[in-house]
Design a protein around this nucleic acid. Structure first.
Lengths: 242, 242
DNA sequence: CGCGGGTTTGAATGAGTTCAATCACGGTGG
DNA sequence: CCACCGTGATTGAACTCATTCAAACCCGCG
């Protein structure tokens, strides 16, 4: 429960009753190893998911094997609220690391959230943030250079990990291969490698293995044209009614 | 009202009561000339909008003037449900043509929809579709070549116009300059021009001015790796309760 | 008629890809 | 303990797709 509560309490003042409301939901805990598929394109979605631990990603495939990662999901992220209308999945969801998931039937989830306006507000904020992240991903790959893309992605993930408490310092560990970053940023794995070297050479980051230290966060943000407004990190934490 | 009703009835069986429920909403009709701004980054969003007539777009700007269009909005599209939590706009919305908009205060809109489960389902479907279109835009600019991008965008807009009744044949009129297409597809205006020529040379389209005829829809779809599943066009038209 | 916005075409340039070789690291089995 | 993998990262060289800059063109409109 920690992950989702930590996340939601960024958006609204979660009460004990809210916590209970969530806890009473008939849920299942699922764990998956790294590289497993959670949701497959075309299958009916009936459950909502919350990531308790680990990283996952959404992606689509072209028929000739090209892959585009739509976004990364970190602990506290929830997804597939579209289940509420029995849509068929239009993309894959798979794990990057070992993942512990909490799942609940969409109908029950909706009922629980409906009964608790604060929860509704918090989940709505989460959805607003997620959609905005999607939009920024479009700007990232549509109008940024390779260097800017890599720098921007690193900064975004850093903020998101700070928000959920998964990072505390200017150092972050990303469970991503060059290939994974490439498929997220619309580049080739080779060029990700070169680009990281370039950022290293400019003393903007220190990247060893999968750990990255932001040596010069300001310079990095300037290079990437990073403006965190889109992350909606300082949503008003009011006990607003939805 | 026609535009939104035509759209919603693709998703659910809209009753007379539903129509009334919407009609009773305290709304305003706003018209804007082409190239006007409807929503500006950073301002508080308190209204929800429905496009009755005309085209609009969402876009973001980088500080050095680069622009990325996130998506296009056609008659029947609704937006800024994020207003429900008083978020600040994280992108611009501006008109491409003259536009007639219907606006309603978010709170009242929510109340009306809440009271009518069918409406809730229909609007939810619209949101599912919109988010899926956003994801496909990411695939389009992340992993498709220039030709594929242009062909894919044309096909998407054609389907969407068919859905809302704004197109009836294999010919469509897009109120887009080469520049606008470029800023949507992450390319330069010059290259859009060349790419359209290439598609013309292959006898896939006939493009004269702003009118495009799909001479070979099948060939175009094959080239673009177009798979319309992501548009969720055949959502179950059940009177489902949300 | 001439202006201006938008489109097209050409030539040179450049950012990123592809292919291939090398390297680094962490198992695994003999 | 060490040889041997396999996976992922890095580097170099050739290549390609798309950009940039500039000129010409088209067409509707005052």
């Amino acid at each position: 429960m920690d992950a989702i509560l930590g996340r939601l309490s960024h958006y609204a003042q979660i009460s004990e009753g809210d916590v209970e409301g969530l806890a009473k939901l008939p849920h299942a805990i699922v764990t998956r190893g790294p590289g497993q598929t959670i949701v497959t394109v075309g299958e009916a979605v009936t459950q909502v998911f919350v990531i308790e631990e680990g990283w996952a990603m959404r992606h689509r495939m072209l028929s000739d094997g090209r892959r585009q990662i739509v976004n990364f999901m970190v602990p506290g992220d929830c997804f597939d609220l579209q289940a509420l209308v029995n849509a068929k999945a239009d993309h894959y969801v798979s794990t990057l690391t070992s993942v512990r998931l909490r799942t609940a039937p969409a109908a029950q989830f909706l009922a629980a959230v409906r009964a608790r306006p604060t929860l509704a507000t918090a989940f709505w904020w989460a959805a607003v943030q997620e959609e905005s992240i999607l939009r920024e991903q479009i700007v990232r790959i549509g109008r940024r250079t390779a260097r800017e893309r890599v720098a921007h992605l690193i900064l975004e993930l850093h903020r998101r990990l700070l928000q959920t408490g998964a990072a505390k310092t200017d150092t972050l560990t990303l469970p991503l291969t060059r290939e994974t970053m490439a498929d997220s940023l619309g580049l080739s794995a080779v060029h990700i490698s070169r680009t990281l070297s370039a950022l290293r050479a400019r003393k903007l980051i220190e990247a060893t293995g999968r750990t990255i230290r932001l040596s010069d966060p300001t310079g990095l943000a300037r290079l990437a044209h990073f403006n965190e407004a889109y992350l909606h990190l300082n949503a008003p934490r009011l006990p607003a009614d939805l």
